[in-house]
Design a binder for these strands. Sequence first.
DNA 1: GGATGTGAATGCATTCACAGCA
DNA 2: TGCTGTGAATGCATTCACATCC
Lengths: 211, 211
Amino acid sequence: MDVIPNRVSQRLSLYLRQLEAFQRLDRRTISSLQLGQSLGLTDAQVRKDLGYFGQFGRPGIGYLVADLIAKVKRILGTDKTWNVLLVGYGNLGRALVAHKEFAAKGFQIVAVFDSDNAKIGRKSGAIAVQALSELPCTIARERIALAIIAVPPDGAQVVADQLVNAGIKGILNFAPVSINVPPSVALNAVDLSVLLEQLSFQINFQKKDPN
Amino acid sequence: MDVIPNRVSQRLSLYLRQLEAFQRLDRRTISSLQLGQSLGLTDAQVRKDLGYFGQFGRPGIGYLVADLIAKVKRILGTDKTWNVLLVGYGNLGRALVAHKEFAAKGFQIVAVFDSDNAKIGRKSGAIAVQALSELPCTIARERIALAIIAVPPDGAQVVADQLVNAGIKGILNFAPVSINVPPSVALNAVDLSVLLEQLSFQINFQKKDPN
DNA sequence: GGATGTGAATGCATTCACAGCA
DNA sequence: TGCTGTGAATGCATTCACATCC
Protein backbone atom coordinates (compact mmCIF):
# COMPACT_ATOMS: atom_id res chain seq x y z
CA MET A 1 0.00 0.00 0.00
CA ASP A 2 1.05 3.56 -0.67
CA VAL A 3 2.55 5.78 1.92
CA ILE A 4 -0.04 8.14 3.40
CA PRO A 5 0.56 11.88 3.00
CA ASN A 6 1.01 13.64 6.29
CA ARG A 7 -1.89 16.00 5.92
CA VAL A 8 -4.29 13.18 5.25
CA SER A 9 -3.86 11.69 8.70
CA GLN A 10 -4.38 15.08 10.29
CA ARG A 11 -7.70 15.49 8.55
CA LEU A 12 -8.79 11.96 9.37
CA SER A 13 -9.28 12.90 13.00
CA LEU A 14 -11.39 15.85 11.97
CA TYR A 15 -13.54 13.66 9.76
CA LEU A 16 -14.16 11.38 12.70
CA ARG A 17 -15.09 14.26 14.98
CA GLN A 18 -17.50 15.63 12.42
CA LEU A 19 -19.01 12.22 11.64
CA GLU A 20 -19.75 11.70 15.30
CA ALA A 21 -21.45 15.09 15.39
CA PHE A 22 -23.63 14.09 12.44
CA GLN A 23 -24.42 10.80 14.12
CA ARG A 24 -25.66 12.65 17.20
CA LEU A 25 -28.06 14.44 14.84
CA ASP A 26 -29.29 11.03 13.65
CA ARG A 27 -27.91 11.37 10.16
CA ARG A 28 -27.58 7.98 8.52
CA THR A 29 -25.66 8.90 5.40
CA ILE A 30 -23.45 11.79 4.39
CA SER A 31 -21.88 12.88 1.13
CA SER A 32 -18.31 13.97 0.67
CA LEU A 33 -19.64 17.43 -0.14
CA GLN A 34 -21.49 17.75 3.17
CA LEU A 35 -18.64 16.36 5.22
CA GLY A 36 -16.18 18.62 3.45
CA GLN A 37 -18.26 21.77 3.81
CA SER A 38 -18.66 21.22 7.52
CA LEU A 39 -14.88 21.44 7.80
CA GLY A 40 -14.13 23.99 5.11
CA LEU A 41 -12.71 21.40 2.71
CA THR A 42 -13.65 20.38 -0.82
CA ASP A 43 -15.57 17.25 -1.63
CA ALA A 44 -12.74 16.00 -3.81
CA GLN A 45 -10.34 16.20 -0.93
CA VAL A 46 -12.58 14.17 1.34
CA ARG A 47 -12.95 11.47 -1.27
CA LYS A 48 -9.27 11.40 -2.07
CA ASP A 49 -8.31 11.20 1.60
CA LEU A 50 -10.66 8.33 2.32
CA GLY A 51 -9.57 6.69 -0.92
CA TYR A 52 -6.12 6.05 0.54
CA PHE A 53 -7.64 3.52 2.89
CA GLY A 54 -10.27 1.80 0.79
CA GLN A 55 -13.63 2.25 -0.88
CA PHE A 56 -16.07 3.17 1.83
CA GLY A 57 -18.80 5.00 -0.05
CA ARG A 58 -21.66 4.17 -2.36
CA PRO A 59 -22.16 6.05 -5.59
CA GLY A 60 -25.44 7.93 -5.58
CA ILE A 61 -25.77 7.56 -1.79
CA GLY A 62 -22.64 8.77 -0.04
CA TYR A 63 -21.14 7.22 3.08
CA LEU A 64 -22.99 5.39 5.83
CA VAL A 65 -22.18 7.43 8.92
CA ALA A 66 -22.00 4.62 11.47
CA ASP A 67 -20.01 2.46 9.10
CA LEU A 68 -17.52 5.16 8.25
CA ILE A 69 -17.03 6.03 11.92
CA ALA A 70 -16.06 2.43 12.61
CA LYS A 71 -13.72 2.35 9.64
CA VAL A 72 -11.99 5.59 10.53
CA LYS A 73 -11.60 4.52 14.15
CA ARG A 74 -9.87 1.37 13.03
CA ILE A 75 -7.56 3.36 10.80
CA LEU A 76 -6.72 5.78 13.59
CA GLY A 77 -6.28 2.96 16.07
CA THR A 78 -8.88 4.37 18.43
CA ASP A 79 -11.20 1.40 18.18
CA LYS A 80 -9.40 0.21 21.29
CA THR A 81 -8.19 2.08 24.37
CA TRP A 82 -4.65 3.42 24.72
CA ASN A 83 -2.99 3.78 28.08
CA VAL A 84 -1.24 7.13 28.34
CA LEU A 85 1.16 8.61 30.86
CA LEU A 86 1.78 12.23 31.73
CA VAL A 87 5.05 13.79 32.83
CA GLY A 88 4.79 17.16 34.57
CA TYR A 89 2.08 17.79 37.13
CA GLY A 90 1.96 21.58 36.87
CA ASN A 91 -0.93 23.78 35.81
CA LEU A 92 -1.22 22.28 32.37
CA GLY A 93 -0.58 18.74 33.55
CA ARG A 94 -3.40 18.93 36.07
CA ALA A 95 -5.78 20.20 33.42
CA LEU A 96 -4.83 17.36 31.09
CA VAL A 97 -5.37 14.71 33.75
CA ALA A 98 -8.81 16.16 34.40
CA HIS A 99 -9.64 16.46 30.70
CA LYS A 100 -12.72 14.24 30.28
CA GLU A 101 -12.56 14.07 26.53
CA PHE A 102 -9.39 12.01 26.44
CA ALA A 103 -11.10 9.00 27.97
CA ALA A 104 -14.14 9.47 25.74
CA LYS A 105 -11.86 9.26 22.72
CA GLY A 106 -10.05 6.17 23.93
CA PHE A 107 -7.05 7.69 25.70
CA GLN A 108 -6.78 6.78 29.37
CA ILE A 109 -4.20 8.57 31.49
CA VAL A 110 -3.09 5.84 33.86
CA ALA A 111 0.08 7.30 35.37
CA VAL A 112 1.49 10.71 36.26
CA PHE A 113 5.14 11.59 36.88
CA ASP A 114 6.97 14.64 38.16
CA SER A 115 10.55 15.41 39.12
CA ASP A 116 9.49 17.57 42.07
CA ASN A 117 9.66 15.52 45.25
CA ALA A 118 7.05 17.76 46.85
CA LYS A 119 4.49 16.59 44.28
CA ILE A 120 5.26 12.89 44.43
CA GLY A 121 2.55 10.90 46.13
CA ARG A 122 -0.10 13.56 45.59
CA LYS A 123 -3.26 12.04 44.24
CA SER A 124 -5.37 13.02 41.30
CA GLY A 125 -8.40 10.80 41.62
CA ALA A 126 -7.08 7.25 41.74
CA ILE A 127 -3.68 8.22 40.31
CA ALA A 128 -0.72 9.06 42.54
CA VAL A 129 2.13 11.17 41.16
CA GLN A 130 5.27 9.03 40.79
CA ALA A 131 8.98 9.72 40.62
CA LEU A 132 10.59 9.51 37.19
CA SER A 133 12.69 6.57 38.36
CA GLU A 134 9.55 4.47 38.21
CA LEU A 135 8.97 5.16 34.53
CA PRO A 136 10.32 1.88 33.16
CA CYS A 137 8.44 -0.47 35.43
CA THR A 138 5.19 1.45 35.26
CA ILE A 139 5.34 1.57 31.47
CA ALA A 140 5.91 -2.15 31.32
CA ARG A 141 3.31 -3.01 33.95
CA GLU A 142 0.55 -0.81 32.50
CA ARG A 143 1.47 -1.42 28.86
CA ILE A 144 1.75 2.28 28.11
CA ALA A 145 2.63 3.31 24.56
CA LEU A 146 1.83 7.04 24.59
CA ALA A 147 3.26 9.83 26.72
CA ILE A 148 2.43 13.51 27.22
CA ILE A 149 5.22 15.89 28.21
CA ALA A 150 4.08 18.98 30.13
CA VAL A 151 7.29 20.02 31.89
CA PRO A 152 9.29 23.26 31.74
CA PRO A 153 11.44 23.63 28.62
CA ASP A 154 14.78 22.74 30.19
CA GLY A 155 13.63 19.34 31.29
CA ALA A 156 11.83 18.27 28.16
CA GLN A 157 14.65 16.62 26.21
CA VAL A 158 15.85 14.62 29.21
CA VAL A 159 12.33 13.40 29.86
CA ALA A 160 11.90 12.50 26.20
CA ASP A 161 15.10 10.45 26.26
CA GLN A 162 13.94 8.58 29.33
CA LEU A 163 10.57 7.89 27.73
CA VAL A 164 12.18 6.58 24.57
CA ASN A 165 14.54 4.36 26.53
CA ALA A 166 11.63 2.98 28.49
CA GLY A 167 9.92 1.93 25.28
CA ILE A 168 7.33 4.67 24.69
CA LYS A 169 6.12 4.68 21.07
CA GLY A 170 4.57 8.16 20.78
CA ILE A 171 5.09 11.49 22.50
CA LEU A 172 2.91 14.58 22.65
CA ASN A 173 5.11 17.50 23.69
CA PHE A 174 3.66 20.64 25.26
CA ALA A 175 7.02 22.02 26.41
CA PRO A 176 7.95 25.14 24.43
CA VAL A 177 11.12 23.66 22.97
CA SER A 178 12.03 21.35 20.09
CA ILE A 179 12.85 17.83 21.16
CA ASN A 180 14.51 15.05 19.22
CA VAL A 181 13.43 11.45 19.17
CA PRO A 182 14.46 8.53 16.98
CA PRO A 183 12.40 8.04 13.83
CA SER A 184 10.82 4.94 15.30
CA VAL A 185 9.01 7.09 17.86
CA ALA A 186 6.04 9.24 16.79
CA LEU A 187 6.19 12.85 17.90
CA ASN A 188 3.63 15.64 17.99
CA ALA A 189 4.29 19.05 19.49
CA VAL A 190 2.16 22.00 20.56
CA ASP A 191 3.47 25.28 21.84
CA LEU A 192 0.65 27.35 23.29
CA SER A 193 2.45 30.65 22.77
CA VAL A 194 3.18 29.79 19.17
CA LEU A 195 -0.53 29.34 18.58
CA LEU A 196 -1.17 32.91 19.71
CA GLU A 197 1.80 34.22 17.77
CA GLN A 198 0.28 32.88 14.58
CA LEU A 199 -2.86 34.89 15.24
CA SER A 200 -0.79 37.93 16.06
CA PHE A 201 1.05 37.53 12.78
CA GLN A 202 -2.10 37.26 10.73
CA ILE A 203 -3.61 40.35 12.30
CA ASN A 204 -0.43 42.35 12.31
CA PHE A 205 1.01 41.49 8.96
CA GLN A 206 -1.15 39.52 6.60
CA LYS A 207 -4.24 41.65 7.09
CA LYS A 208 -2.62 44.95 6.33
CA ASP A 209 -1.25 43.59 3.07
CA PRO A 210 -4.27 43.99 0.72
CA ASN A 211 -4.26 47.77 1.24
CA MET B 1 4.65 42.49 -1.36
CA ASP B 2 3.90 38.86 -2.07
CA VAL B 3 1.43 36.86 -0.13
CA ILE B 4 3.14 34.77 2.53
CA PRO B 5 2.68 31.00 2.35
CA ASN B 6 0.86 29.62 5.30
CA ARG B 7 3.58 27.31 6.44
CA VAL B 8 6.10 30.09 6.54
CA SER B 9 4.32 31.95 9.31
CA GLN B 10 4.05 28.78 11.34
CA ARG B 11 7.78 28.26 11.19
CA LEU B 12 8.53 31.88 11.99
CA SER B 13 7.43 31.38 15.59
CA LEU B 14 9.70 28.37 15.86
CA TYR B 15 12.64 30.36 14.52
CA LEU B 16 12.02 32.97 17.18
CA ARG B 17 11.86 30.40 19.94
CA GLN B 18 15.08 28.82 18.79
CA LEU B 19 16.85 32.14 18.33
CA GLU B 20 16.01 33.09 21.91
CA ALA B 21 17.43 29.79 23.06
CA PHE B 22 20.67 30.50 21.19
CA GLN B 23 20.77 33.97 22.68
CA ARG B 24 20.57 32.52 26.18
CA LEU B 25 23.69 30.54 25.25
CA ASP B 26 25.39 33.83 24.30
CA ARG B 27 25.57 33.05 20.62
CA ARG B 28 26.03 36.24 18.61
CA THR B 29 25.56 34.91 15.10
CA ILE B 30 23.91 31.89 13.60
CA SER B 31 23.81 30.38 10.12
CA SER B 32 20.73 29.14 8.35
CA LEU B 33 22.21 25.67 8.57
CA GLN B 34 22.51 25.77 12.35
CA LEU B 35 19.10 27.31 12.86
CA GLY B 36 17.55 24.80 10.50
CA GLN B 37 19.20 21.76 12.03
CA SER B 38 18.03 22.74 15.50
CA LEU B 39 14.47 22.46 14.20
CA GLY B 40 14.84 19.60 11.75
CA LEU B 41 14.64 21.85 8.68
CA THR B 42 16.99 22.49 5.77
CA ASP B 43 19.14 25.58 5.50
CA ALA B 44 17.51 26.48 2.21
CA GLN B 45 14.13 26.55 3.83
CA VAL B 46 15.25 28.87 6.59
CA ARG B 47 16.74 31.29 4.08
CA LYS B 48 13.72 31.16 1.81
CA ASP B 49 11.33 31.75 4.71
CA LEU B 50 13.22 34.75 6.01
CA GLY B 51 13.63 35.99 2.46
CA TYR B 52 9.90 36.69 2.24
CA PHE B 53 10.36 39.52 4.71
CA GLY B 54 13.66 41.06 3.72
CA GLN B 55 17.39 40.49 3.67
CA PHE B 56 18.45 39.97 7.24
CA GLY B 57 21.68 38.02 6.90
CA ARG B 58 25.25 38.68 5.88
CA PRO B 59 27.03 36.43 3.40
CA GLY B 60 29.95 34.68 5.02
CA ILE B 61 28.68 35.47 8.50
CA GLY B 62 25.10 34.37 8.92
CA TYR B 63 22.46 36.21 10.94
CA LEU B 64 23.03 38.39 13.99
CA VAL B 65 20.98 36.69 16.66
CA ALA B 66 19.81 39.76 18.57
CA ASP B 67 19.03 41.60 15.38
CA LEU B 68 17.08 38.75 13.86
CA ILE B 69 15.09 38.29 17.07
CA ALA B 70 13.99 41.90 16.88
CA LYS B 71 13.09 41.60 13.21
CA VAL B 72 11.08 38.42 13.67
CA LYS B 73 9.25 39.88 16.64
CA ARG B 74 8.21 42.84 14.56
CA ILE B 75 7.00 40.55 11.80
CA LEU B 76 5.02 38.45 14.25
CA GLY B 77 3.66 41.51 15.99
CA THR B 78 5.02 40.43 19.35
CA ASP B 79 7.30 43.42 19.77
CA LYS B 80 4.42 44.90 21.71
CA THR B 81 1.99 43.36 24.19
CA TRP B 82 -1.40 41.97 23.19
CA ASN B 83 -4.33 41.95 25.56
CA VAL B 84 -6.11 38.60 25.43
CA LEU B 85 -9.37 37.36 26.89
CA LEU B 86 -10.38 33.84 27.80
CA VAL B 87 -13.86 32.33 27.63
CA GLY B 88 -14.42 29.18 29.68
CA TYR B 89 -13.04 28.91 33.18
CA GLY B 90 -12.92 25.13 33.42
CA ASN B 91 -9.90 22.90 33.91
CA LEU B 92 -8.17 24.00 30.77
CA GLY B 93 -9.16 27.64 31.16
CA ARG B 94 -7.65 27.80 34.63
CA ALA B 95 -4.40 26.30 33.38
CA LEU B 96 -4.24 28.83 30.56
CA VAL B 97 -4.78 31.78 32.90
CA ALA B 98 -1.96 30.51 35.08
CA HIS B 99 0.33 29.82 32.11
CA LYS B 100 3.34 32.04 32.76
CA GLU B 101 4.78 31.79 29.29
CA PHE B 102 1.97 33.76 27.67
CA ALA B 103 2.97 36.96 29.43
CA ALA B 104 6.65 36.32 28.73
CA LYS B 105 5.83 36.12 25.03
CA GLY B 106 3.76 39.30 25.03
CA PHE B 107 0.27 37.89 25.54
CA GLN B 108 -1.48 39.20 28.64
CA ILE B 109 -4.75 37.58 29.68
CA VAL B 110 -6.68 40.55 31.06
CA ALA B 111 -10.23 39.19 31.27
CA VAL B 112 -11.98 35.86 31.86
CA PHE B 113 -15.57 34.97 31.01
CA ASP B 114 -17.84 32.04 31.75
CA SER B 115 -21.50 31.30 31.20
CA ASP B 116 -21.83 29.48 34.54
CA ASN B 117 -23.26 31.86 37.13
CA ALA B 118 -21.60 29.89 39.90
CA LYS B 119 -18.18 30.83 38.52
CA ILE B 120 -18.86 34.51 37.93
CA GLY B 121 -17.04 36.73 40.37
CA ARG B 122 -14.47 34.09 41.28
CA LYS B 123 -11.02 35.52 41.18
CA SER B 124 -7.89 34.29 39.51
CA GLY B 125 -5.22 36.61 40.80
CA ALA B 126 -6.37 40.10 39.99
CA ILE B 127 -8.89 38.92 37.39
CA ALA B 128 -12.53 38.26 38.27
CA VAL B 129 -14.61 35.95 36.08
CA GLN B 130 -17.24 37.95 34.21
CA ALA B 131 -20.56 37.15 32.58
CA LEU B 132 -20.61 36.95 28.80
CA SER B 133 -22.93 39.94 28.66
CA GLU B 134 -19.97 42.09 29.60
CA LEU B 135 -17.92 41.00 26.60
CA PRO B 136 -18.49 44.09 24.43
CA CYS B 137 -17.68 46.73 27.00
CA THR B 138 -14.68 44.87 28.40
CA ILE B 139 -13.26 44.30 24.93
CA ALA B 140 -13.62 48.00 24.14
CA ARG B 141 -12.32 49.19 27.50
CA GLU B 142 -9.26 46.93 27.58
CA ARG B 143 -8.57 47.10 23.84
CA ILE B 144 -8.62 43.33 23.46
CA ALA B 145 -7.97 41.88 20.01
CA LEU B 146 -7.34 38.20 20.78
CA ALA B 147 -9.59 35.63 22.41
CA ILE B 148 -9.14 32.06 23.61
CA ILE B 149 -12.14 29.74 23.61
CA ALA B 150 -11.99 26.91 26.16
CA VAL B 151 -15.64 26.00 26.54
CA PRO B 152 -17.49 22.72 25.93
CA PRO B 153 -18.16 21.95 22.26
CA ASP B 154 -21.83 22.93 22.19
CA GLY B 155 -21.15 26.46 23.30
CA ALA B 156 -18.20 27.21 21.08
CA GLN B 157 -19.91 28.57 17.97
CA VAL B 158 -22.19 30.86 19.96
CA VAL B 159 -19.24 32.23 21.88
CA ALA B 160 -17.30 32.72 18.66
CA ASP B 161 -20.17 34.68 17.15
CA GLN B 162 -20.35 36.92 20.19
CA LEU B 163 -16.61 37.52 20.07
CA VAL B 164 -16.73 38.41 16.40
CA ASN B 165 -19.63 40.79 16.94
CA ALA B 166 -17.77 42.44 19.77
CA GLY B 167 -14.85 43.16 17.46
CA ILE B 168 -12.32 40.43 18.31
CA LYS B 169 -9.72 40.04 15.56
CA GLY B 170 -8.26 36.62 16.32
CA ILE B 171 -9.56 33.46 18.02
CA LEU B 172 -7.70 30.46 19.40
CA ASN B 173 -10.20 27.63 19.75
CA PHE B 174 -9.62 24.72 22.13
CA ALA B 175 -13.19 23.42 21.92
CA PRO B 176 -13.28 20.07 20.08
CA VAL B 177 -15.52 21.29 17.28
CA SER B 178 -15.10 23.24 14.04
CA ILE B 179 -16.20 26.84 14.30
CA ASN B 180 -16.84 29.34 11.53
CA VAL B 181 -15.75 32.95 11.56
CA PRO B 182 -15.71 35.58 8.82
CA PRO B 183 -12.50 35.75 6.78
CA SER B 184 -11.61 39.05 8.42
CA VAL B 185 -11.07 37.23 11.72
CA ALA B 186 -7.98 35.05 12.23
CA LEU B 187 -8.66 31.57 13.56
CA ASN B 188 -6.44 28.88 15.01
CA ALA B 189 -7.74 25.64 16.46
CA VAL B 190 -6.33 22.89 18.64
CA ASP B 191 -8.12 19.74 19.63
CA LEU B 192 -6.21 17.92 22.33
CA SER B 193 -7.71 14.54 21.48
CA VAL B 194 -6.86 14.98 17.83
CA LEU B 195 -3.23 15.44 18.79
CA LEU B 196 -3.21 12.05 20.48
CA GLU B 197 -5.14 10.46 17.63
CA GLN B 198 -2.41 11.45 15.23
CA LEU B 199 0.13 9.62 17.37
CA SER B 200 -2.16 6.64 17.59
CA PHE B 201 -2.46 6.62 13.81
CA GLN B 202 1.26 6.74 13.25
CA ILE B 203 1.90 3.88 15.63
CA ASN B 204 -1.05 1.80 14.55
CA PHE B 205 -0.95 2.23 10.82
CA GLN B 206 2.06 3.97 9.38
CA LYS B 207 4.58 1.94 11.32
CA LYS B 208 3.29 -1.44 10.34
CA ASP B 209 3.40 -0.52 6.68
CA PRO B 210 7.09 -1.16 5.84
CA ASN B 211 6.73 -4.87 6.69
C1' DG C 1 36.42 30.28 2.38
C1' DG C 2 31.92 30.67 4.10
C1' DA C 3 27.76 32.22 4.06
C1' DT C 4 23.40 34.57 2.01
C1' DG C 5 19.64 35.33 -1.48
C1' DT C 6 17.11 33.60 -5.15
C1' DG C 7 15.60 31.75 -9.91
C1' DA C 8 14.97 27.02 -11.63
C1' DA C 9 13.83 22.35 -10.81
C1' DT C 10 11.73 19.10 -8.31
C1' DG C 11 8.34 17.00 -5.39
C1' DC C 12 4.04 16.98 -2.87
C1' DA C 13 -0.89 18.16 -2.23
C1' DT C 14 -5.14 19.74 -4.03
C1' DT C 15 -8.47 20.25 -7.42
C1' DC C 16 -10.58 19.04 -11.82
C1' DA C 17 -13.30 16.34 -14.46
C1' DC C 18 -15.33 12.39 -15.84
C1' DA C 19 -16.20 7.20 -16.19
C1' DG C 20 -18.93 4.17 -13.72
C1' DC C 21 -22.28 2.61 -10.55
C1' DA C 22 -26.78 2.76 -7.53
C1' DT D 1 -29.98 11.83 -11.41
C1' DG D 2 -26.61 11.82 -7.67
C1' DC D 3 -22.68 10.51 -5.95
C1' DT D 4 -18.16 7.89 -5.56
C1' DG D 5 -13.41 6.73 -7.01
C1' DT D 6 -9.50 8.10 -9.46
C1' DG D 7 -6.13 9.45 -13.31
C1' DA D 8 -4.71 13.94 -15.14
C1' DA D 9 -3.85 18.73 -14.46
C1' DT D 10 -2.89 22.28 -11.70
C1' DG D 11 -0.99 24.81 -7.90
C1' DC D 12 1.87 25.22 -3.84
C1' DA D 13 6.06 24.23 -1.08
C1' DT D 14 10.65 22.58 -0.77
C1' DT D 15 15.08 21.78 -2.37
C1' DC D 16 18.90 22.56 -5.58
C1' DA D 17 22.49 25.07 -7.16
C1' DC D 18 24.97 28.93 -8.04
C1' DA D 19 25.95 34.04 -8.59
C1' DT D 20 27.07 37.22 -5.17
C1' DC D 21 29.00 39.35 -1.34
C1' DC D 22 31.75 39.73 3.46
